[in-house]
Amino acid sequence: MTQDISPIPSPAAILARLVAFPTVSRRSNLALLDYVEDLLRPAGVRLERFESDDGTRANLWASLGPAGSGGVVLSGHCDVVPVEGQNWSSDPFELRTEAGRLYGRGTADMKGFLAASIHAMLQAAPRSLALPLHLAISYDEEVGCLGVRGMLDALSTRPERPALCIIGEPTGMRIANGHKGKRGLRACCHGQEGHSALAPDALNALHLGAAFITRLQARQEQLKATGAQDTAYDIPYSTVHVGVMHGGTALNIVPNRCDLDFEIRNVADDDPDAILAGIAEDAEEIAAPYRNRFPDARIEIEEISGYPGLETPAGTPAVALLKSLLGRDDPLIKVAFGTEGGLFQGTLGVPTLVCGPGHMAQGHKPDEFVSEEQLAECTRLLAAITDVLGEGEAAALAP
């Protein structure tokens, strides 16, 4: 295939185009993927889409170099969180540069890494790589790493396996080898409606919900006191958190239903199934005493989202390689937020690390930014990785 020799746009220029696509989770990302493909296809990059069931969103798998196992996959999501209700200093979907910072929704989380990765693919395209370089762009990560699963399921049926996956979430260009797993859950509390003037003759579902929250708080204290501890995390133990509570329609009606959305974020040495089993026992203990009067009294728990944790051994050869390419020997970190890393590790059996430009402290808030310095450091790291793939001599990246 004849390759286009047009000038390669800078990472900042690519980032400006990526930010301009308002790819809020569950909305279409197809226009963004069209742009990325229009950049990569003329350079001879092999491209494959994996569409959502309704066809409005898709993952993109892009590859360079020889077919087969080994090499590196650079992975990132292109969806962003909403901007509604946030007080931005400028249009969040128009990149603004000021005082060495690049402002816009998704600059830190995580279109900055995607821009650097696309630039790296374009730089690598004319080269004869000894080991493959892949780019994975996924959708709907912000709502539970939903999109990437279909792509990984398809890739898992193929014999080829990358030797390393780098998730480019913002770590300040530190290497993270772990994050907690997450279960997103909904508790549906069923009571019995009635007139509020006769409230004792009904069963208030909000009261069931309040009792359930009290039990969740007790479980949290138990995990803090006696659960597994991992001091690499800011919060070194597993956590239980209630984020949403809905119930009731009018003040003079005793509500018959209350829904609570809650989550479990577990360290590797805690079993989330065991934690959930204890919570289910609590739910039954709350509802059971009411059944003589109210046979339908119950608290049902369903899983609505989730992803596995990531735990890559510090002695993995790729860790030493990345440290050498970064040119420093910082201690490994573990991040509080989740990624698709555990899915890559679990579905494909690929050693996975998290390393990307920017800081999550800037993500999900007004005037999100990534610094030009961080974006440049990421660009240098990916160029160094490409050099290693060209040489084909790094045992950590070989099949």
Rank of each mutant, 00 (worst) to 15 (best):
L129P: 03
D140I: 04
T312H: 07
G306D: 11
A383L: 11
E221K: 10
V73P: 03
G338K: 01
T226K: 09
L15Y: 03
L223P: 08
P366I: 05
G71A: 04
G346W: 00
L203A: 08
R27I: 00
A274G: 02
Q217P: 00
A210S: 15
A361C: 09
G104I: 07
A31N: 11
H77Q: 14
V240T: 10
D387N: 12
M1H: 13
E377R: 14
E372R: 12
L30G: 06
R17I: 02
L326Q: 14
H241T: 13
P399N: 14
Y35H: 15
A320N: 11
V370G: 07
F113S: 05
S196N: 09
S63Y: 00
P351E: 07
A13E: 15
L223H: 07
A31V: 03
G243T: 08
G315F: 03
R291W: 08
T157Y: 02
L33W: 03
G100E: 04
I275E: 02
N29S: 10
S128R: 14
A124Q: 03
V240L: 14
I264A: 07
T2R: 15
L155T: 03
R127I: 00
R219K: 13
F212I: 10
R219T: 12
E221W: 06
L203Q: 06
G178E: 07
L122G: 06
H207T: 13
K224M: 13
G392S: 04
H207V: 13
L39R: 02
G306R: 08
L114I: 14
N292V: 13
E142C: 03
V81A: 13
R186C: 13
